[in-house]
Structure formats: structure tokens, C-alpha cells
């Protein structure tokens, strides 16, 4: 991330963003990469997050939380970022179960920022980067008043 002077700031903002979110912290999420409007976040495998005890596969809800966080971070990292944002709508498609024991990586891209809403796409993978685990499409609200959405 070294080089351009604005990049560390962006990474710092993003790190602050995730550390300030108790639920994301509880799920062990870590920001790996921040570019303007694009964020990568990982979530490690955790036995507490298992949704199907017979297979040991993590619950879809944990993947939802990862994708929601990553999409929100992508909005915040956008050059025209609002002060605060909230999820208006999120649709998740589950392609296959995540392999037990593997960390999940999510990449979210805020591909359009209008005056009223931010549009985001996200994809999640485990170690097999050729076959995504899930994909999401989200719409986020924008607000430039602190503490208000």
C-alpha cells in the first residue's frame, strides 16, 4: 500500500471502519486490501460459526455478514464517499458450501455512486479461487450528516 500519499490514509480509514464494528470484529474479519471503491476482507473458519453440524460447513449468515461489511466498506472507500452509509437492500446467491477449515475472502466493488444511492457487487471465495462460494448485489444509502442515515 506504500507509494501514493493518499493510500495509507484510505487503508487507515478502512481499518478503523472494521475495528469500530463489533459484529465484524466478533467474526474475526480483517481488511486485506483497499482501493478507491474496492475492498477485500477475510473471515477465518470458526467452529462457532458452523451452520450444518453434519458437514461442518459455516452458516450462510456468517457469509452474509462478511459480504455486507465488505460492501459497506467499498462504499466508504469510494472517492465520493458519504459520511455514513447503511444497507438498503442486499441479495446473496449461494453457489456452493464453503469448504470447512478454509478462510473466506470477499471482494466488493462499489461500481456506481449516484446522489441518492451506492450500488455494490461482491464475490466470496475459499481456497479454490476458480469457484466462488457466493455473490452479492447491494444498494446502500448515503448520508452526509453524522449519526443519521
Amino acid at each position: 500500500m506504500a507509494g501514493e500519499s493518499d493510500k495509507p490514509t484510505l487503508a487507515q480509514i478502512a481499518a478503523q471502519f472494521i475495528n469500530a464494528i463489533p459484529h465484524s470484529r466478533a467474526l474475526g474479519m480483517e481488511i486485506k486490501d483497499v482501493e478507491p471503491g474496492l475492498v477485500r476482507i477475510t473471515m477465518p473458519y470458526d467452529a462457532r460459526l458452523v451452520g450444518d453440524p453434519r458437514t461442518g460447513v459455516m452458516h450462510g449468515g456468517a457469509v452474509s455478514a462478511l459480504m455486507d461489511t465488505c460492501c459497506g466498506a467499498a462504499v466508504i472507500s469510494h472517492p465520493k464517499a458519504p459520511v455514513t452509509t447503511a444497507t438498503l437492500d442486499l441479495r446473496i446467491d449461494y453457489f456452493r458450501p464453503a469448504t470447512p477449515g478454509q478462510t473466506i475472502l470477499c471482494e466488493a466493488h462499489c461500481h456506481l455512486m449516484t446522489r441518492s444511492a451506492a450500488f455494490v457487487r461482491a464475490t466470496a471465495w475459499d481456497d479454490d479461487t476458480d469457484r466462488p462460494v457466493a455473490a452479492a448485489n447491494g444498494v446502500f444509502t448515503l448520508s452526509n450528516v453524522k449519526g443519521k442515515n
Partner: peptide, 8 residues
């Protein structure tokens, strides 16, 4: 509440 917690 986190949107992800609500979703889950």
C-alpha cells in the same frame, strides 16, 4: 444492529 446479524 449489524445488517449481517439481521440477515443471519
Amino acid at each position: 444492529l449489524h445488517g449481517g446479524a439481521t440477515a443471519a
